[in-house]
Design a protein around this nucleic acid. Structure first.
Lengths: 206, 206
DNA sequence: CTACTGTTAGGCCGCCTGGTCGAAAAGTGA
DNA sequence: TCACTTTTCGACCAGGCGGCCTAACAGTAG
């Protein structure tokens, strides 16, 4: 009945689930471990969530929303498509620096979570990002398409490039995990110039 | 005693493991399912392999070796670093077209397989690719470094670019899975020009 | 045929999984 | 204080897991 306690508990459990996935990986994530980290019992999780699958889905949706809430103003602040692309890359890496476990968890869940019939529940490499707007491929593809229409960008396949940018950011996360001393700021400028060169229209007639 | 039967059985089991991982994912891969697909019993797997972990490790090592055996001559045939980079991308996508399950399985295992202490057993995003030479980041990094030394490439971080190329190829696989009609040949040329533009030295003094 | 070795099958084990249940606890309003 | 609802707890369940064991099988050499 008390919605405040409800929300707080759910938040606590979600946070525990994030840390668990980030630490032991998707296959090692069990209700018992999540409960232990949240300092409760499995039953509490079962009381607040219909099941493990739903919990992990909530984790993904919340992280998507949080991440995009952080990134959106920085992307929207840019006027050019090239600026938006750079802002997208830098913003995600900035968010990553402060929320390593979140992005680690979301990547792990998205890559592994499946429905009962065996197909992946989240397939972010397709056109429509279901559910959580932003942070799917949709936003990125839109930026790229807009840049092409505006004549800023050369003629590439926007979906290929969107997937590649997303994977590049995942790669940064992966390397950061195995090499914690990695300079994410430098990584951001590396990727920004990389994709700037890859998208920019070759200088010809004005 | 009979090494032919031994090798054949091992091969058969490894193949069944590949298909299983590719179909149901790493968390859904069990000895029972692998045995079922190989039309044997779990005991046979236990007889020929020390355990599930070792089996999956063999899967990764063999696929690494096979893939690189396919790619190496095509990469070595090129003389310029840019040519080698393009050949690397195209060759892996060509291999992918004929061996979808293999690359799917290796990606899944590498991303999820952990040692007893909880750390990832394969961490291909680091400098040294342990065990299997080729197909790690090492070869790619070498190509990029050589291109820089030869003056073909601009001054980027070779490791960042190597990780990005590898992830880009993973992204192609991911999209191909959700969209089987995807034209991998077109994807190859997209990625080749993308990374050509990203690595090429800007034209200035000769 | 016998004796032996390498291989297979299926039942079995302890363990852990996600999830449920009834009862106890904590909170709430009169 | 009381009655009532919401929340927590630990025990418990059926099922699946990786792995093991024993007995039977197939070859082969003598």
């Amino acid at each position: 009945m008390n919605p405040i306690i409800q929300a707080a508990r759910r938040e606590q459990i979600i946070e525990a689930a994030i840390d668990t996935v980030a630490e032991v990986g998707y296959p090692g994530t069990t209700l018992a471990r999540i409960a232990e980290r949240a300092q409760t019992s499995k039953s509490v999780i079962s009381y607040h969530f219909p099941g493990k699958d739903d919990l992990l889905e909530q984790v993904v949706l919340q992280i998507y929303a949080d991440t995009w809430a952080f990134m959106e103003p920085r992307v929207e602040a840019e006027t050019t498509a090239a600026g938006q692309l750079g802002a997208y890359i830098t913003a995600e890496l900035d968010y990553m620096r402060e929320h390593r476990a979140r992005l680690l968890a979301v990547a792990d869940i998205v890559a592994n979570h499946r429905t009962a019939d065996g197909s992946l529940r989240f397939t972010p490499d397709a056109e429509g990002s279901q559910g959580a707007e932003g942070l799917g491929l949709g936003v990125l593809t839109d930026i790229l398409r807009r840049g092409q229409r505006a004549g800023e960008f050369r003629n590439f396949d926007p979906q290929v490039l969107a997937v590649t940018v997303n994977r590049a950011l995942d790669g940064a996360l992966g390397r950061w995990v195995t090499e914690p001393s990695l300079d994410l700021g430098a990584y951001a400028t590396e990727l920004t110039t990389l994709f700037d060169l890859a998208t920019r229209k070759p200088q010809k007639e004005s």
